[in-house]
Nucleic acid binder design. Structure first.
Lengths: 262, 262
DNA sequence: GAGTGGTCTAGACCACTGT
DNA sequence: CAGTGGTCTAGACCACTCC
């Protein structure tokens, strides 16, 4: 401790936490901080980049440094799975009205823009183990991007894997032109006689890769939530393995665990 | 784009991803990189600090820079709640054997070291809203640290809030000297006639604060998972609000959602 | 053009690690 | 002590934003 840049960063951090510098406020210019601290430009910049990595400030080139505002978080509720299951056997008309994402966000379907792309692949060793199938088993790999119509960045990156032999009975399921599919994956599986029993979701967090930063338009000082979702059918087979990347500053996951009564 | 430090970082990142530099391997020394790149020392250092923030490398002062190894993750399974509820009415002897944490990690109770500290506080505006009670309502604030006996850093930071008037009927519940309490919070609540109906867990992620980095002994380039756990009793009252901070590189949360049959 | 942040250098000096 | 990374400077020059 007590390096020059840590002192400068610590002073500013204290002022931000005390509310003296409120979210949205402009920090003193770097030139000012150089004068006040008596340290060099690069040292002041280092202090500021520490605060940026902590997610406390946002640097805007040519404008100034600002206290970062908390972003409103989109909720992703695990009741979405039961909700989607309930609708999987409804009529097309009803299913067309809204999907699970709209259910979470409370938005109309027109507020969302949706991209999907399918590809046939073979199971890697890692995926084969999760599916409990031999390496090289044909899979259908599906990638999705969903974003608000009003924004440019998607709010998640999704890669889903289905077992090819389980879904090839319905040729419509192999063509990404049919996305967005009314009723979602659970309805798609229903068309080939698959009913889900449970969904496992494994959650962890890490700093974003440069590619994720790019695609999700993340600011420096943001983490990503990484979610692996595994769907089991009523015969206890793994039918879908999805990897989902979510921006940590814009996402909140909600899981409700109901307990049996005494 | 295509700045000097980005090029150097990009080259090393590519070599790491290709496996040419495997986890645990030592990177070329900074002096070597200066020669190879023809750039200055600080520029090379900047490239390396980018990779550090991404969690790709680990800097060891006086030794070298190394490709970071993935850490083994402790699993936190939401079935722990039902498991804890089932044990809440068992005998003391049985409850003493293991707690929910041991259940998750598969460890013996002697492998864990446990700290707890209680304090009486008043509800802030934010907590009051979650509890659905007036601001200033007396609460029992409990902070916990749990760590492996073999390690120095705790694997989580927990702050739990109970409504004081709900638990003061049993004086033992107000004294942190009684921790670790066999059977955990659900048994504690059982002693004052409270049965839980469900648990809501809200999960998000962000970079750690300096204090969290310190307490959890996090390396630069690590995120934290922030979990707010809200416990509802069978009368639909909020009885516990806990905030839990977990290291992103050592933790995996597992949530299983069971679906109703058609 | 004035103001602000971003990149980069060349080199000094300090601190930690292992022999 | 040699090797390696960490901090810091003084100043040059570039890039973006706003007026």
């Amino acid at each position: 401790m007590a390096t020059a840049y840590e002192k400068i960063a610590g002073g500013l951090r204290a002022r931000i936490r005390a509310g003296e510098l409120a979210p949205g406020d402009k920090l003193p210019s770097e030139a000012t901080l150089v004068k006040e601290s008596g340290k060099s430009g690069p040292t002041v910049q280092r202090a500021l980049s520490v605060l940026q990595e902590e997610g406390l400030i946002e640097k805007r080139h040519g404008i100034g440094n600002f206290v970062r505002k908390p972003r409103t978080k989109a909720l992703r509720d695990n009741c979405r799975h039961q909700w989607e299951k309930d609708r999987a056997r409804e009529s097309v008309e009803l299913r067309k009205q809204t999907g699970a994402t709209e259910h979470d966000t409370g938005l109309e379907i027109d507020d969302l823009v949706f991209y999907a792309s399918y590809r046939k692949t073979k199971a890697t060793a890692e995926l084969a183990e999760v599916f409990g199938l031999p390496e090289g088993t044909p899979l259908l790999k599906r990638t999705y991007r969903t974003r608000y119509a009003a924004e440019t960045a998607p709010f998640n990156l999704v890669t889903s894997h289905l077992v090819h032999s389980m879904v090839e009975g319905n040729a419509d399921l192999l063509d990404d032109a049919n996305e967005p599919w009314p009723g979602g994956t659970q309805n798609q599986l229903h068309t080939v006689g698959i009913e889900l029993d449970r969904i496992e979701e494994r959650v962890t967090a890490r700093p974003p890769t440069p590619e994720e930063t790019e695609e999700l338009e993340l600011l420096p000082g943001t983490s990503v939530i990484v979610l692996r979702k595994i769907s089991y059918d009523i015969k206890d087979r793994v039918v879908d393995v999805s990897d989902i990347t979510l921006p940590g500053d814009r996402t909140e996951l909600l899981f409700t665990t109901r307990l049996e009564r005494w």
